[in-house]
Write a protein that binds this DNA or RNA. Structure first.
Length: 271
DNA sequence: CCCGATTCCTGTAGGC
DNA sequence: TGCCTACAGGAATCGG
């Protein structure tokens, strides 16, 4: 499931085949995704050059001189660069066909993704303008996390997964970062000390950076722009490891539900 | 404002 | 073997 490292891996993988290319055609086979694909997308994007491919949170921003395509991979989305003639399969919802002879193909079985178009500054878009800082930016620091957490009664895991607080931290990396920082995911965000937030901050940055380096995490669906999986799965300490021994103390990893999400932790190493 | 629950979707896993 | 149900989750939205 694409979180920040998977989206960044995708961006890096497809950018060389997309940036500077002219869009020859757009084929839309399924319009009903998380949000309907606007009917204007095809005539807006046709014949334009992709000037820049940027990531903000888990959104990919395809900049042109006349507007911006905003794409979200949702839960099961993937983007691949393929030959124009390659036949489409089930769930291949959108093709961006380039003059180069290549096609950017968007597949999304669970349809939680989205493809939108804006002629305004994409950072001011309704889905983007309220988002918190990028986790790997200097703006995201200990003071910020500590200040924002005061008086909060919600669990710290839910807190760091809130995109208004910080973007890009989904379920996998929230679990992993809390393990790395030795913090129980159930602890109330407002009662965690500044020293522990410093550990958590470093853990979030570290786990995301390492996951990007490994090309993201592939549980089932995720593939990068070249159709290859990510290898961070081999590095997971707690996620999807219910009952398996903790790599630190050998006690079995526990799983609980927290905010409708599977939560994995070591009851000995995290408190 | 804050926080937890609900909702969208389909492939897959597990139970019987 | 095959059918059925539960479950996975990003994030907007809703209700208290």
């Amino acid at each position: 499931m694409p979180e920040l490292p998977e989206v960044e891996t995708t961006r890096k993988g497809i950018a060389p085949y997309v940036v500077g290319e002219t869009v020859k055609n757009i084929i839309i086979r399924e319009r009903q995704l998380r949000w309907p694909i606007p009917t204007s997308l095809k005539r807006s994007l046709k014949n334009l050059v992709i000037r820049k491919l940027e990531r903000r949170a888990k959104y990919l921003l395809f900049h042109t001189e006349k507007g911006c395509m905003i794409l979200h991979l949702g839960m099961s989305g993937s983007l691949r660069v393929i030959d124009n003639k390659q036949p489409h399969e089930k769930h291949d919802h959108v093709d961006i066909v380039f003059e180069s002879g290549r096609t950017l193909r968007f597949r999304d079985p669970r349809k939680f993704g989205s493809v939108l178009w804006t002629t305004d500054d994409p950072m001011q878009h309704k889905l983007i303008n309220h988002l918190g800082p990028e986790p790997l930016s200097d703006e995201f620091d200990t003071d910020y996390l500590y200040t924002r957490s005061r008086k909060r009664t919600q669990a710290i895991k839910t807190f760091i997964m809130d995109s208004r607080i910080v973007v890009g931290v989904g379920n996998i990396y929230a679990n992993e970062a809390l393990f790395m920082a030795g913090i129980n995911p159930n602890r109330k965000a407002g009662t965690v000390s500044k020293a522990r937030y410093e550990k958590l901050l470093m853990a979030i940055k570290k786990v995301l950076t390492l996951a990007i380096k490994k090309g993201g995490t592939t549980l089932r669906d995720f593939i990068n722009g070249e159709g290859k999986p990510g290898y961070f799965r081999n590095e997971l300490q707690v996620y999807d490891r219910k009952g398996e021994p903790c790599n630190n103390c050998k006690k079995p990893i526990k799983m609980v539900r927290l905010g409708q999400r599977s939560t994995f932790y070591c009851s000995h190493c995290q408190n």
